[in-house]
């Protein structure tokens, strides 16, 4: 037998964090998806223990200000893509407003640490959402295009093909076959 699951990553992550932090007996607050504030300053030893226990779950403690900012940019992009009204904004102004940095700075920083531009990342993210919907729902491309705020199906298909090298229908066919082959 085989079952298919989807995750709400935020819940999963929070649950893991809570479990591990509670286990180690810290007094903490989870501020957002990326920030945890502690009441007391952690010792180096405590930090090492925490880093090790979290690494089991693929969670790394970011100790770099820039990396942290990149992560915040990604989060903000995710937020923006999830928020229907936010879609009305231009990504550059949205990020600049939200993060209080000039877009040029953010863009530069992002490219430096991720080898890709913010624009490309947004596209990748949107295509990933489209993939998700194509693979796991019965929505038509038209519906998906509308949901993901694409101006047209052609726009979605074009961007999908350009980004993935595959047409949405080929992608769908492959995913379908994969499920049939239990991979």
């Amino acid at each position: 037998m085989k079952i298919y699951v989807t995750f709400n990553l935020n819940i999963t992550r929070n649950a893991i964090l809570k479990e591990q932090l509670d286990r180690l007996g810290f007094d903490y607050t989870i501020e957002n998806t990326q920030e945890i504030s502690f009441k007391n300053k952690l010792t180096t030893e405590q930090q090492l223990v925490l880093a090790e226990s979290l690494s089991t779950y693929g969670i790394t403690i970011i100790d770099d200000q820039k990396t942290e900012l990149v992560q915040r940019i990604k989060d903000t992009i995710n937020e923006m893509l999830a928020d229907e009204e936010a879609n009305l904004y231009k990504i550059s102004s949205y990020l600049a407003d939200k993060l209080n940095y000039s877009y040029a700075y953010l863009s530069n920083l992002f490219s430096e640490s991720t080898y890709t531009s913010i624009e490309n990342f947004v596209i990748l993210k949107k295509v990933d959402q489209a993939k998700e919907l194509i693979a796991n729902t019965d929505l038509t491309l038209t519906e998906i295009a509308y949901r993901l705020n694409y101006s047209s199906v052609a726009h979605l298909s074009g961007q999908f093909k350009k980004t993935t090298g595959l047409t949405p229908s080929t992608f769908q066919k492959i995913i379908k076959k994969r499920k049939e082959f239990n991979i």
């Binding site: 990748l124 993935t164 992608f171």
Partner: peptide, 12 residues
């Protein structure tokens, strides 16, 4: 690094 669904990791 970016919470993308690896099940749909398909590129040509």
């Amino acid at each position: 690094t970016s919470n993308l669904n690896k099940d749909n990791f398909l590129f040509r």
